[in-house]
Every structure is written in structure tokens, then in C-alpha cells.
Design a protein around this nucleic acid. Structure first.
Lengths: 211, 211
DNA sequence: TACAAAACTAAACAAACGTTTAATTTAAAC
DNA sequence: GTTTAAATTAAACGTTTGTTTAGTTTTGTA
């Protein structure tokens, strides 16, 4: 699916507004105003507001799919390195697509059917399968323990990163830092997130039960 | 603040609809129909739709505040037991108030000011302070490591539980189990969540760096 | 029973919503 | 330069929205 510059402009503006104020709170007139186009253009190009959301999802999903697919082909030496690499790529992905990620997380709690539901379901399943693959690899090599809950692990991965970013945004609302200071604080926070998430996962995966 | 039976009925119905379909997607007429009252009653009792949401938040928050406050007075023997107890109470709280928790999580991403923002901010801060207290206690007794990131830990706690419950709901949409079977599956899932979350936290808190 | 306050109702309100229409401008092709 | 299709516009469409009004019923009190 190819989009003209104007179509992409509408999609980008809509994504930002949807992420900031929610899908239903954002009106087509809000989008048109921010994108500096006529209100009729959204229907003209995308058919409807729902279809616009769907177009945004399809567009962003194809990128995320590629990133997740690339994780498999990452050549690493040990199972631990593989887990660390996985976490790095995963965090990079969510940070890079943070607006879309926020939108998806928010709407996923009320979407119960249709193409968007299927896409989100696919993403969650893919994510879980990749975690499972990495875990089983480590188990086969005798590095990881046997009784690891993959459902739990994938929940922790996406849930922790998501909550960490959300909390950080919340705290930033209370500060009066400059944009530059906020950028530095964000980088530090993400680096801390990487470090502790890796440590926590590896501790959970390798620790001996016999205490 | 005391509410009559009818007022509580409206609040309960509204909470369920808000949690299931989102605040902005749910109309006052939807609420009135489900609660079997006249549309004007919502404005009559609560003033406006926003105030109704606020009333729901205030009402549920007072309960959650009490639960979190009780955690401090939990008498336990060791720091590890304290962490385990904390996780148990926390999960109990989110499961018991799962509708409200879903609503709060969803709306917290778009609420940027006002009384609801302040309440959510307070809850996050309280939660983090309690985690900090438990961690420092363990550090003082030489059981936990020194370089623990409390911001990270509180994010992992709420994020993991939230994501786990959300994923479980997502998977349930695809099955055709009976209500009873779903209830059993849910219980099992929550028990697994308890077990693995405790194990993971304790592994992260106690493991030696010198590997 | 009389009365005042509270509870409740149907109807109407203006505003905002997503979408469509009909007309006009722009761009491309011949 | 003419023609044809695409892009763009302002205006209007019918619904739905949250809220208010004005009137009725119920309830509690003296």
C-alpha cells in the first residue's frame, strides 16, 4: 500500500493526536486542523475514521513485524547474550514507535474483534513465540532452568517497558525542565531500564531453586 | 461521601461500561439504559459525565488507599516474606478491583491534569514508596543487594500484573470455554503469576553480581 | 390531610460528531 | 488549448452527544 505525502501527513498527525488524547476524543476536525487539510479529505482518502485508524495500524505493524522477524536471525554466542539482544531490540522498537505503541496499548483494551484485534493478537503471539524460542535454546544448553513460564515472561517484558515509559511521562509532567533536560532524563531512564531488565530476566532464568 | 443505592447502581454500571468500551465511547444514554434509570438522573445525581467519572475514581481510590496503607502494618519475619506478602496483596487488590484498574490504566495515558491526574500520581508515588520501604528494609538486613532501581521495580510490578491480566483476557476471547472453565483458567493464571513474580523479584533482589 | 422537598420523567436544547454532496480548482494527458 | 480525472473546498446532512427544562410523581414530615 503506497501513500502520497498528504496521506502520510494525515496519518502522522492523526497518530500523534490519537496517542495524546485517545481515539474517540480526537475528532476528524481536530485532525484536519492539525494537518492543515479540509475535513472532507480524511473521508476522501481513507473512507472513514475507523479506516484511517486501520490504515495507521497496518502501516506501523508491517515495520514492527519486520523488526521482530529480524530478532530470529540475530547471531549471538550464548543464550544470555541472546536474551540481552532481544531486550535491546524490543526496547528500541517500542521507543522508536512510542506514539503508535501508546495508541495500540490503549485501544487494545477495548478492541474485541475485527482486523485490529487480529493484528494485536498476532503481535502478542509472535512476541511470545520469540521469547519461547530464546528460552528453549537456553534450556537445551543447560544454562536456563526448566520451569520457566513463557506467558509470564512475555507479559513482564512488554508490561514492564510499557509501564516504565508511562510512569516516566507522568513524572515529566510535574517537572519544569527544558526539552534538552527531558531528553537526557529519558535516555538515562531507558538505559537503566535496559540494564535492570536484563539483570532481572537473567536472574530469573538462571537462578537455582535449591536454596 | 455517602451514596444512595441508586447512585451506587449508576456508578457500578458506568464503571463496567467505561472499563469495557472506554470512557468516551460510552454515552450517558448507554449508562442510563443499562442501569435502568432516566438519562437525566446522571446529571441530577453527579452533575456531569466528568463528575461521574471523578466520583467513581474517588470512591474506588479510598479503598485502594486503605489496602496499600495496610501493607505497612503487615507483620512478617523476613524481608523476603515481606516482598512475597506485598506481591500477594497487590495482586489481590488489582484482581478485586479489576474493572476500575482497567479503566484507570486506560485513561491514565490521556489524563494530563486535574483531580484524576493527581489521584493517579499519588497512587503511583505511594506504590513506589512502599516498594522502596520493603527494599531498604532488606538492604539494611544484608539480604538484598545495594543497587536496586526502585522506579524500575514498581514499574515491573504494576506493569507485569496489568499486562498478564490483559493478555489473559485477550486469549480468552479466542476460546469457547464455559464460564466455569474460564474461571478455573483465570485462577490458575493468577496463581502462576504470583509464583513467578515472587521468584523473579527475589532473584533480582538477592542475586550476587560476581558471576 | 396538607405541604414541602426530593425523586423522577419525557421532551427539548444547542453543540459536536462523522460523513456526504455539489461545486470549484488543480494537474496531467493528448 | 482542450479535455478528463484527481484534488480540494465550503456547506449541508442526519445523528448522537451531554445537558437542561418544565412538569409530574413519590416520599417524608407536621
Amino acid at each position: 500500500m503506497e501513500y502520497s505525502e498528504k496521506q502520510r501527513q494525515i496519518m502522522d498527525v492523526a497518530l500523534a493526536l490519537f496517542a495524546d488524547h485517545g481515539y474517540h476524543k480526537t475528532s476528524i476536525r481536530d485532525i484536519a486542523r492539525a494537518a492543515e487539510v479540509n475535513v472532507a479529505m480524511v473521508s476522501y482518502y481513507f473512507g472513514s475514521k475507523d479506516k484511517l485508524l486501520e490504515a495507521i495500524f497496518i502501516h506501523r505493524f508491517s515495520t514492527m513485524r519486520e523488526i521482530l522477524r529480524d530478532i530470529i536471525y540475530e547471531k549471538t554466542h550464548s543464550p544470555i547474550e541472546k536474551v540481552e539482544k532481544f531486550i535491546d531490540i524490543f526496547i528500541d522498537m517500542l521507543v522508536q514507535h512510542q506514539l503508535f505503541h501508546r495508541l495500540m496499548m490503549r485501544e487494545s483494551s477495548v478492541i474485541k474483534e475485527g482486523p485490529l484485534f487480529d493484528m494485536i493478537y498476532e503481535l502478542k503471539t509472535t512476541n511470545r513465540r520469540l521469547v519461547e524460542k530464546a528460552v528453549k535454546n537456553g534450556q537445551r544448553l543447560g544454562v536456563f532452568r526448566k520451569d520457566v513460564d513463557v506467558f509470564f515472561m512475555s507479559s513482564v517484558l512488554i508490561g514492564s517497558v510499557n509501564q516504565n515509559l508511562a510512569n516516566h511521562r507522568y513524572e515529566m509532567e510535574h517537572t519544569q525542565w527544558t526539552a534538552e533536560e527531558k531528553e537526557i532524563a529519558k535516555k538515562n531512564r531507558i538505559n537503566a531500564l535496559r540494564k535492570h531488565l536484563k539483570r532481572m530476566f537473567i536472574a530469573y532464568l538462571t537462578i537455582d531453586e535449591g536454596q
